[in-house]
Simulated assay, not measured.
Amino acid sequence: MELLVVSLASLLAGFVDSIVGGGGLILMPALFATFPNAAPATLLGTNKATSIWGTAMATLQYSRRVTLPWHALLPAAGAGFVASLGGAWLVTQVSPDFLRKFMPVLLVAVLIYTLAKKELGRHHAPRFSGGFEVAVACGIGAVVGFYDGFFGPGTGSFFVFLIVRLLGYDFLHASASAKLLNTATNLSALILFSFKGHVWWHFAVFMAVANVAGSLLGTHMALKHGTGFVRGAFLLVVSALICKTAYDAFLR
């Protein structure tokens, strides 16, 4: 029964995550509710071992239909990988609790800004090219990658927002790009968790299959319905993240 519950949660998480990020909003609470006595690090590691397959599959699916700026994204993925390791190391030295009350405020600002800028991310108009685009992309990868290793909630959504806002991509291209960067940060964290023995592989294998199935469905819908659909999903996920992070910070 436990495997069935977390596999269904993983299926839904893969679906949401492939569109705009935020799958952890579904899978992590399911893991903590199903295994209340497990070590948090083990559940976090199992989540990474599961979600990395969905994000990797989404990256592959998007790359077949959406033209991605690999010259900028590959270095950015490398920056995210290294920064995520740094963040994961720092969290072993310093508690991230101080971020809990800041997160809902930041997410509210992202939501308000996106709603106010009605044309934000509706048209694909890259703002930079060449080395400067690479530099900005690497900056995004490094900042969000470090955050993912150190704290984590909303990583995919932050990637999408910053790619739209700073690089000028539409939401569909931004979501596709974010999947590659998120795969790199997930891999970085997974290596660390695996090295420390914090992965339940006997659960992760089945959950990964479900996550990939959800990811394939979500990617298909995003490609079929385009930027407007992804933008709407982004607003919905950010709203849900605000509720979740506010509850964790102020009510729990």
Rank of each mutant, 00 (worst) to 15 (best):
S84K: 07
L190K: 11
H220C: 01
V105T: 03
T34A: 12
A38W: 10
V238K: 03
L251D: 02
A204V: 07
A240W: 04
R231N: 14
D170L: 10
V164N: 14
E119H: 10
H123R: 14
L27T: 04
G168Y: 12
A109Q: 07
G87S: 12
I242R: 05
K179Y: 02
Y247E: 08
R165T: 11
Y147E: 04
L3V: 13
V108G: 14
R100I: 03
A125P: 08
S10Y: 02
F128A: 06
H198I: 03
T227I: 11
L241E: 03
T67C: 06
L8Q: 01
T155S: 02
A233K: 00
F81A: 11
L190F: 15
W70V: 03
L25P: 01
A49T: 14
A184T: 14
L235T: 01
S239R: 09
G228N: 14
L167R: 12
T50C: 05
K118M: 00
A189G: 09
L223F: 02
L43T: 06
H71E: 14
S129F: 05
M221P: 07
G139F: 11
G226T: 10
G154R: 04
T183P: 08
T183D: 06
H173Y: 13
M207P: 10
G197D: 05
M103H: 13
D248G: 15
D248H: 07
G86V: 06
L8W: 00
F159T: 09
T92K: 12
H123N: 12
W70C: 08
G121K: 11
I26R: 00
D148M: 09
V105S: 06
I140V: 08
S157P: 03
V134W: 05
V209Y: 00
G232T: 07
A210C: 11
L99Q: 07
L111H: 10
G141N: 12
L181A: 12
A109M: 15
W70D: 09
R64H: 06
A30C: 04
S194I: 09
T92S: 15
K48D: 01
P69L: 13
G131T: 01
G87K: 05
R231H: 05
F171L: 14
Y169W: 14
L190C: 08
S7F: 03
S7D: 00
H225Y: 10
V212H: 00
V6K: 07
S10D: 06
P104L: 09
G149L: 11
S7L: 00
F229C: 04
F151Q: 09
S188C: 05
F32Y: 13
A83N: 07
F193M: 14
V108M: 11
A58V: 03
G154A: 04
V160N: 05
P75G: 14
G149Q: 06
W70I: 09
D148K: 12
L181N: 13
S95R: 07
A33I: 15
S129R: 10
G226C: 11
F161Y: 05
T114W: 02
Y113R: 07
H198P: 06
T55C: 07
Y247K: 14
K179S: 01
H202W: 05
L166W: 02
D17S: 09
I191S: 15
Y169C: 13
